[in-house]
């Protein structure tokens, strides 16, 4: 473990869970939800008492792919600017030359890339509530409350964090074998280990264990029933989340935080934080 996280202190800070909840709720109210979802908020958030393990494995120069991506982008914007009569394809040397003409990022001494192993198998838990709304015949005519409790999050992955030309790249590279998590998987797998290998090889799953417990419906004046632990719904949500992460942040996809500020802003000092 390269990073020492003082989790005890976090855990004992009783205000922390509350502030995190408030911050998240503030964010959730600010975003635009689809019309059939209403009242999305975090009801409870608990950090858990086990810290994540973060281990720094390598510090190297950034891989070429990041430079390629930046250059390609610069090229595109340059092409958009100089877009005129010429509109034929991307092939050939001509475009490359033009790219060099405009702007190209080369590896510099300040660029750095970290290969970090992240491991978490703690008891963080989040409770989210939302309402599915039927806007017919009048607005918010009928609502179905849903409560999700997410816990038992476990992952053990290698991530790539690179910083170059004022941009931060983050990508999950691959999963790492983990005795506890692997065992979890086989239990969760309904088809058993022999039948499960039907589909194509999964590149990465990032979140290896996750339990979602659902509550659909709400009692009203002590009347009616609440549907609990809807297995299919839980499975569905899990798959969606995994797919989303795999699509968005798993190599060769990545997230790119751009800290570059164009100079036409009032401030011309380049801040890097």
């Amino acid at each position: 473990m390269s990073f020492d996280i003082n989790w005890e202190q976090l855990r004992n800070d009783s205000n922390l869970n509350r502030t995190v909840t408030e911050k998240l709720n503030g964010y959730l109210t600010s975003i635009n939800l689809p019309s059939y979802v209403n009242n999305l908020r975090i009801e409870r958030f608990s950090m858990g008492d086990r810290p994540p393990k973060v281990t720094l494995r390598q510090i190297t120069d950034p891989v070429q792919d990041f430079y390629d991506a930046i250059n390609e982008e610069l090229q595109m914007s340059a092409e958009e600017e100089t877009e005129g009569s010429d509109d034929e394809g991307y092939g050939g040397d001509r475009v490359r030359n033009r790219g060099i003409d405009t702007q190209t990022v080369f590896p510099s001494a300040n660029d750095v890339q970290f290969l970090v192993e992240m491991e978490y198998n703690g008891n963080m838990s989040i409770t989210v509530t939302a309402e599915m709304v039927l806007n017919y015949p009048s607005k918010k005519f009928m609502a179905l409350p849903i409560r999700l409790t997410i816990s038992n999050i476990g992952f053990h992955t290698l991530c790539l964090i690179a910083f170059l030309s004022k941009q931060l790249f983050f990508s999950f590279l691959c999963d790492v074998t983990d005795p506890i998590l692997d065992e979890d998987d086989s239990i969760l797998d309904q088809n058993g280990p022999l039948l499960s290998s039907k589909g194509p090889l999964e590149r990465i799953s990032i979140i290896r264990s996750l339990s979602i417990s659902t509550e659909v419906g709400e009692e009203y004046q002590g009347d009616g029933s609440v549907l609990k632990s809807v297995g299919k719904l839980e499975q569905f949500l899990k798959e969606k989340l995994k797919d989303f992460l795999r699509k968005e942040v798993a190599w060769p996809s990545w997230i790119n935080f751009d800290f570059y500020e164009p100079e036409d802003n009032e401030s011309d000092d380049n801040q890097i934080n």
């Binding site: 494995r57 192993e117 290698l158 790492v176 074998t177 280990p193 499960s196 589909g199």
Partner: peptide
């Protein structure tokens, strides 16, 4: 057979 794509932990340990 489990159709998993996992980097062996040992590889990490041995750097």
């Amino acid at each position: 057979l489990q159709n998993k794509n996992l980097l062996p932990e040992e590889a990490l340990e041995e750097n």
